[in-house]
Simulated assay, not measured.
Amino acid sequence: MEMVIENLPSYRVAYVRQVGPYGPDNAQAMNTLKQWADNKQLLNESATLLGIPQDDPTTTPPEKCRYDACIVITESEQLEDDYIEIGELSGGDYLICKVRHTAEDIQQAWRVIIPHLHTSGYRMDNKPVIERYRWELLHRHWCEICVPVRPV
């Protein structure tokens, strides 16, 4: 598995928030976002989609877990809509792990990521983990797990 430290910029995003247990409803939120983005002609080769679980399901009751399905947008795009929120995602250093977009491969990645952090001189920062879907990876069924990090 490829793992590199990357400094992500701050992003302006349009997003759909799903509240409830993580699982199939997250995929529905992403599909809703993709449909909206496609209608706005934002779903193209330069698109970056983000999946952001906002809460730790081991400490947050399932019915209160928040998941944001996002697309990166420019400052100039005026995209007001009743179903879509606009927000900012702060940048910073992230451990980027490119993985096949299957539940099994993502679970396996986490078994490698945590030990890797302990030996790399970094630890997780107090920001949400991001799943990043760039066009060139999405169509090959890959994604990037972006883990916020800071030096020990």
Rank of each mutant, 00 (worst) to 15 (best):
Glu2Arg: 06
Met3Tyr: 11
Met3Ser: 11
Ile5Phe: 07
Ile5Gln: 07
Glu6Gln: 15
Leu8Gln: 04
Pro9Asp: 13
Ser10Val: 00
Ser10His: 05
Ser10Lys: 04
Ala14Thr: 01
Tyr15Asn: 12
Tyr15Arg: 07
Arg17Asn: 06
Val19Arg: 02
Val19Ser: 07
Tyr22Pro: 10
Asp25Arg: 12
Asn26Ile: 12
Asn26Cys: 13
Met30Gly: 00
Met30Tyr: 00
Met30Gln: 11
Asn31Pro: 03
Thr32Ala: 13
Leu33Thr: 04
Lys34Trp: 12
Gln35Pro: 06
Asn39His: 13
Gln41Ile: 00
Leu42Gly: 04
Ser46Gln: 10
Ala47Lys: 05
Leu49Ser: 10
Asp55Ser: 09
Pro57Phe: 06
Pro57Tyr: 08
Cys65Tyr: 08
Arg66Val: 00
Asp68Met: 13
Cys70Ala: 02
Ile71Phe: 02
Val72Ala: 00
Ile73Phe: 00
Ser76Ala: 06
Ser76Gly: 13
Glu77Val: 04
Glu77Thr: 05
Glu80Gly: 09
Glu80Asn: 14
Tyr83Asn: 15
Gly87Asn: 09
Glu88Val: 11
Leu89Met: 09
Ser90Trp: 09
Ile96His: 02
Cys97Thr: 14
Thr102Asp: 07
Gln108Lys: 11
Ala109Ser: 03
Ala109Phe: 03
Ile114Ala: 05
His116Asn: 12
Leu117Val: 05
Leu117Thr: 08
His118Leu: 10
Thr119Met: 07
Thr119Gln: 15
Ser120Tyr: 13
Ser120Glu: 01
Arg123Ser: 10
Met124Asp: 01
Asp125Trp: 03
Pro128Glu: 13
Pro128Tyr: 05
Pro128Arg: 02
Pro128Trp: 06
Val129Phe: 10
Ile130Thr: 01
Ile130Glu: 03
Tyr133Lys: 08
Leu137Ser: 05
Leu138Met: 10
Cys143Asn: 12
Glu144Gln: 00
Cys146Pro: 11
Pro148Ser: 02
Pro148Asp: 12
Arg150Gln: 08
Arg150Ala: 04
